[in-house]
Every structure is written in C-alpha cells, then in structure tokens.
C-alpha cells in the first residue's frame, strides 16, 4: 500500500469496521459465485471433459507447445538484440546537434510509435511480396517488431539521457572529452543503467508483439496453439493454457522490473547527487512511453 493511499482513510472505527466486514463478505460471496458460474458454463458445454485437458500432460503435445515457446523466445531475443542498439542510435540521433539527423530520427520515432504493428506485418506478408520483395517468414514477423519497438526504445533512452544532470556533460567537456566521447563514456553508461527497469518492461511488450506470428503464419507459441487446435479441436483449453504461459512469463519479468526499480530507488549512488526522486520521475516518464504495449 502506498503512503498516499494510506492517508485517504483513518484507521476504521467500530462502525466502519462492521461495514467493511459486510462488504468483504459480500465480495467474497460474489467472487465464489462468479467462479462457480464459470465452472458451470464449462461443465454444461462439456469443456471440462478430462480428455480435453489431459493432452496437456502428454509429451507430444507438450513438445509441440514447447517448440512454439522456443520460437517465441527466439523472436523476442532477436528483436531485442537488434532493437535495443537501434533505439540507442535513434535516441542519440534525436539529441544530435545536426538538424537533419535530428529531424529524420524524430520523424522515424514518431511515425513508428504511432502505427499498428499488425499493419507492418501485413505489409511484409501481403504487400511487399506482391511487388516482388519476399523475405523468410521469421523476418516478416521480426522486422516489423524491430521497426516499431526501436522507436519506443529510442524514447526510453532519450528520457534516460535527458534525466541526467547537465553537469555530467559539462564536466566531461571540461575534462576535454569531445561530445561523442562524453556521450559514450559518461552519459550513456549512466542513462542506460537508469532505464534498465523500463528495458525489462519493454521485453514484455516484445514478447507480446511476437504473438502476431499468428497473423504472419510463423509457428511461435500463438500460431502453434492454432495448429494444435486444428488437430485436437480443444480451442478454449489450448488458449487458456497458452494464456497462462504468457501471463506467468510476463509476471516474472514485471516482478524483475519492479525489483530493479526499487533497488535503484534505494541505491542513490546510481545517480550521485540526483537522488531517488529523479529516478522515480524518469521511470514515470518512461512508463508513459511504454504504456502503449499491446
């Protein structure tokens, strides 16, 4: 519970405590009723049939989904490996003193942050092959992901760089470093450390983005689930299992991001003199940027 929440209400007195208890009991009853209703719906339509569920313990099915998961992770890792350096370059481009570079990277970032990823996937799947440009299926999924997420990552890095005290850059040039040396040796190492929690959050959206393999016909987890369903006809079971896999992985990643953020907030040495308030503000700015993740 955050401190602002706690002061919104007093420690409840006897009347309030009674009221809270009543509402709590009603809520619990409603939750139980909702779960019961869902189970009843599943049971009535025969979706609880054990045969539809045991297949997820049988090795051939498990192996099939694991293969899909492996492709999902491969997509995520490859997109991250290209998009993160590209994001750094774009962020530097937006902060460049050369007007042309600044404007070009600005236009790229604004455009690719504002179009749906699926549109780009369709361009690679249906549009470009029609005019004779054809890349392997993997890249039909991964190139669009890289194009869009490098734009988001650029905003994250830019927020990180701008959050550093100006004195860092000034001290670096006072020491005789050129601007590019100062960026490389002084600003970037600190800025990147600052945005690491947000980078982890961005990995979550890369993982979500890879589900568009469903539209690109690339056999990652989502498409594998569809292929499996075509064979078993247990659609709702398969996608519940797949959803669970995504939620578990993403929850683990977001816990990691939260842990890193808290550690940064406590460890003031990350930004000597800037303090944890600045760190919090950066992460808030950055979270605004990454909120768009679908």
């Amino acid at each position: 519970m955050s401190s602002a929440n706690r002061v919104l209400f007093d420690a409840p007195g006897p009347r309030a405590r009674r009221r809270i208890a009543v509402i709590s009991v009603v809520t619990v009853i409603l939750i139980v009723a909702a779960i019961g209703w869902a189970i009843e719906l599943f049971a009535r339509s025969g979706q609880l049939d054990p045969n539809s569920w045991v297949e997820f313990t049988e090795w051939p099915y498990v192996r099939f989904l694991l293969n899909g998961l492996l492709q999902t992770l491969l997509c995520t890792v490859v997109s991250a490996a290209v998009a993160i350096p590209a994001g750094v370059l774009l962020a530097l481009g937006r902060l460049s003193r050369n007007g042309l570079i600044r404007r070009l990277s600005g236009a790229y970032v604004e455009f690719f942050r504002s179009i749906p990823l699926l549109l780009l996937v369709y361009v690679f799947v249906g549009g470009l092959p029609a005019i004779g440009i054809n890349v392997p299926v993997f890249w039909k999924l991964v190139i669009p992901i890289i194009a869009c997420s490098s734009a988001v990552l650029a905003e994250i890095f830019r927020a990180g760089i701008r959050a550093l005290p100006r004195g860092q850059l000034e001290a670096a040039s006072a020491l005789g470093l050129t601007r590019s040396q100062a960026m490389r040796k002084v600003v970037l190492p600190q800025a990147i450390r600052l945005v690491i929690p947000s980078l982890v959050t961005q990995i979550i959206s890369l993982l979500k983005d890879s589900t568009l393999g469903y539209a690109a016909s690339y056999p990652e987890l989502m498409k594998s689930a569809e292929n499996l369903t075509a064979y078993t006809h247990d659609l709702i079971q398969t996608y519940l299992v797949v959803s669970l896999i995504y939620v578990v992985i993403n929850l683990a990643l977001s816990q990691l991001a939260r842990y890193l953020e808290e550690r940064q907030g406590r460890n003031r040495n990350v930004l000597r003199g800037a303090g944890s308030r600045r760190v919090r503000r950066v992460n808030r700015d950055v979270n605004d940027v990454v909120l768009n993740a679908q």
Partner: peptide
C-alpha cells in the same frame, strides 16, 4: 496487463461460443 491482447481476442471470439456465450 500481462496477457497479450491477441490471446484475449482469440479466447473471447473463438472460445466463448464453445461455452455457450
């Protein structure tokens, strides 16, 4: 927040009719 939107869409669009909604 952690489920991909496409997953949710498929569950609702193709899954709900299977349980009669």
């Amino acid at each position: 927040r952690n489920i991909p939107l496409l997953c949710l869409l498929i569950l609702f669009v193709f899954g709900l009719p299977d349980i009669g909604i």
